[in-house]
Design a protein around this nucleic acid. Structure first.
Lengths: 327, 327
DNA sequence: TATGCTCTTGGGCATTTACTCGAATCTTCG
DNA sequence: CGAAGATTCGAGTAAATGCCCAAGAGCATA
């Protein structure tokens, strides 16, 4: 037996990093080499419980990446049906986890994988990012990577109504793990008036970012529902009254703040005039991929597709089946 | 709770495929969605034991791909030291699993990942493949993928001494999962005489393959030891007497059949004259990556590096440490 | 149709893993 | 230097997983 490797504490190495290091090692021994946690404990010279904690930490920190390498037949059928029937350019359908009510599991992983594929490209591309919980989760799943050749541009402002950083703006999250040139939008998400919106957009620092967004090669957006718990309302971007007004005007969903009805037409005169986001990049020149699933979002997803607001979709089996039945 | 999805048996779907399908689904629910096997059993409508079998099948069939997304510090240090001190162009060091005597765990995964990276390239490349247990395992870990733009060429013949297909020739294994143009070598691995070797290589069908090999962009080879249990001998390519003669002539390792000594110089006059393999592609024009680890192979790996037979290396921590101490 | 063979199924049980809780240790700040 | 607070540790235990075995189903052949 090879002697246990002594892992000296390099003083320059922060404790946290060294712990993650051990976690990575434990995770490797567990998931790749197939050791039991007892064996890992012996090899790393810690207690079994500590080994368990390291393995668990490796998972929760996202050090362990698992993907299933098999075209699950039903998902494939659904995605090609969606592609053909609805004229979408890109569709990915992940298995549904029946009984789990998570609105992101699966879709986040698939979106992350697709973002990663774009980032891995050697030729420079412009990637525009929307906002929302799903995208946030997807971006957090990205591995550490170097891709200085690309540019990431945010479609939405990053200032919440209370002046803090908008939590679900994903460009900064992305910078945590991916080294890429990023172009956030130092704006509020929703301006106080359409006049203010115009003024903000006219700023010298904002113009180039807006122009960059318009030239995006690929765009990832989430779709927000406009039910009672609409994220726009929950996060404080619109008032309860505005939500009610939008709903009675027929709004069924929103993309980067823009609300639209079941036909995918934008709702006038309530909040859309004040949304400070960049326009959704042209579906003729950009692949605009929506990542969304779940019953609450059915109308929003369907509307976005009907109106041609997006030309790509990442969703789950159940949602895909619903879309095929209703569209 | 969403009702359990009924998975009807499409008659056109083979039983085996449908089973793998379920395995993939179970694997997804387990590893990605984080279900317990009990929950999976309920959701798929099978017993818990069956669910366990499906999950286990998903792993053993290689449907589940796990990778650790963390630069383990020690491995990184070792690999950059190897790169700098030994002038190698590509080095990857994986964690050692102390106590496990597997000669491939870790290295196979890393080699597989690097092969995959080359296959994912959009521009067409020529990949030359050597032979051996490590490479075989690496190729078996490759996911299903489509890359008709590339060409894979075997450096070694695919006919064993008894006339059967040489088991550790990897080009056919690769075709199982990767759709790529492949160029095997319909030759014995070792000819009966140097004259026969010349005759075989002069064949019209062989020449283009040899020329293709010489133009490889990247080459993956294993390194065989020449201990008592040398793979060349165990697999019946050379006799016990020849092995003994090679050893007394100072041979410490072999690459695609060519034996060399501790300085990396080929051994003359014993078996090398009859090896029907293509030459190792030029290290000036091709990245020649050896995938090997383990105490038995220490001399062979060191010799190959000393002699410049390879300019890339995939190995483990323990071997990397040894190389740094002895070279 | 009967027979023998193989493959699959589910129960039981040993092993392995996850979680809880009190004790110990380390940090931080006065 | 010392105490409060936070974190980590290990023991114990509940839960989950992996494996073996006998029984049953499916299948080919006589």
């Amino acid at each position: 037996m090879i002697p246990v490797q002594v892992r000296e504490q390099n003083p320059s190495m922060s404790k946290r990093a060294s712990r993650l290091d051990d976690a990575a090692r434990a995770g490797w021994l567990y998931y790749v080499a197939g050791n039991t946690q007892d064996q890992i404990a012996a090899k790393l010279g810690v207690s079994r419980q500590s080994a368990q904690r390291l393995v668990s930490l490796a998972r929760s920190e996202g050090l362990v990446r698992v993907q299933i390498d098999h075209p699950i037949a039903n998902c494939l059928e659904l995605s090609s049906a969606l592609r053909d029937r609805l004229g979408l350019k890109y569709v990915d359908v992940t298995p549904t986890d029946p009984g789990s009510d998570s609105t992101i599991t699966g879709v986040a992983e698939a979106a992350s994988a697709e973002i990663e594929r774009w980032l891995r490209r050697e030729e420079a591309v412009i990637i525009a990012m929307g906002t929302g919980r799903t995208l946030k989760a997807a971006v957090e799943l990205l591995p550490r990577m170097e891709c200085p050749q690309h540019r990431i541009v945010s479609l939405t402002g990053n200032i919440a109504p209370d002046g803090s950083a908008a939590y679900y703006n994903v460009v900064f999250t992305m910078s945590d793990s991916v080294n890429v040139r990023s172009f956030p939008m130092p704006l509020p998400v929703i301006a106080t008036s359409s006049g203010e919106r115009e003024m903000l957009h006219a700023q010298a620092m904002i113009r180039p970012t807006l122009e960059l967004a318009a030239r995006a090669d690929v765009t990832f957006v989430g779709i927000g529902d406009l039910t009672e718990d609409a994220p726009l309302f929950v996060d404080g971007f619109i008032t309860r009254g505005e939500l009610a007004a939008l709903r009675s005007a027929g709004a069924v969903g929103e993309i980067v703040g823009w609300s639209y009805d079941a036909a995918g037409l934008f709702i006038g005169d309530i909040t859309n005039e004040r949304v400070a986001s960049a326009p959704i990049p042209s579906r003729r020149t950009s692949l605009v991929i929506a990542a969304a699933k779940g019953e609450r979002k059915f109308p929003g997803i369907a509307g976005a597709i009907r109106g041609g607001l997006v030309n790509g979709l990442i969703t789950d089996e159940a949602t895909a089946g619903h879309l095929l039945r209703t569209l």
